[in-house]
Amino acid sequence: MSAASTALPNRGLIPVQTPAAAVPPANAFFVILRANFVADVKFLRRSRLIMAFVLVFLVITVLSLLPSAFGQSEFKSFGTMEQIYGELRLFLAILAGGMGLFLVSFHQRDRSLKMVFTKPCTPANWLLAAMLSASFVSFVLNVVICAVMVGLSYGWHLAVRPGLMFLACESVIVDIIVISTMTLLASLVHPAVAATVAILFNGNLFYSFLQWSLQTIAEGNKTLKMRALEHFFHALYMIIPMYSPFGKHIDSVDGSYRVEHGQWKYLAFSLGYALTFALVAYLVALLSLRRKRHI
């Protein structure tokens, strides 16, 4: 390493400096956004934790595919493919959460953001790039996995159904919601707390609490405390993000890979919900990021 110092050329350190523009270029925001985006994608590609997670899941998937390599014809069924794709989509959702969490918490904790915010790069720009890069990587992985499943369908002589594309799109939407949730939590609390909250306090938990309180009220316990509890659980259930907001309308696709005529619109509704939630999460995370001390 010491060669770096001994090789110092005797020409002075100052290069031809780029003078600062009196007025920032019109596309400055996008130039900075692109720089942040590229840096974030490099972070995701080089993060050992994320890479280890990907490898573990890939090994599990490959092991589950091994029986087909030995020619067990009953294994090459639609059911098996459905199971593998389901597992891979779950893996992608967890990975998406990890990406959102690490992108924000890593940069906050290693204090490298002070190198970013002391330049004309706003927290809004940096946060947008973080969410976009995680969503982009998630999108690419979804496309790759969808392509693998199409390849597997051909290999196993199964019909390639439009449901495969439908589920891939739904998976991207779910990932956007997961990324937004984890980005928001990572900007508010310690990453370990964020992960715990995301795992424990999900929609299902508060839905079951809500159901329990409704059932208790229906059974005759109509006390003020119980009613207040019911409203509280209802409010929490509404606030907690839903990963599959129109799940009951599109659940049938998962089992058959067939898409009925009216089901595509729910994909659009889900996208609308995901983008709205992402916007809210972005604004709250931005507020939190602006209030933090980046020193």
Partner: peptide, 28 residues
């Protein structure tokens, strides 16, 4: 490159190479 691009302007590769060479960081 990243830090210099955060000023909202793309910096020519030659400028980055120049400053890295001057600081003896070229080989690294």
């Amino acid at each position: 490159r990243y830090y210099s691009t955060l000023y909202g302007r793309r910096v020519p590769e030659s400028t980055i190479s120049d400053v890295l060479d001057r600081l003896g960081l070229g080989p690294f």
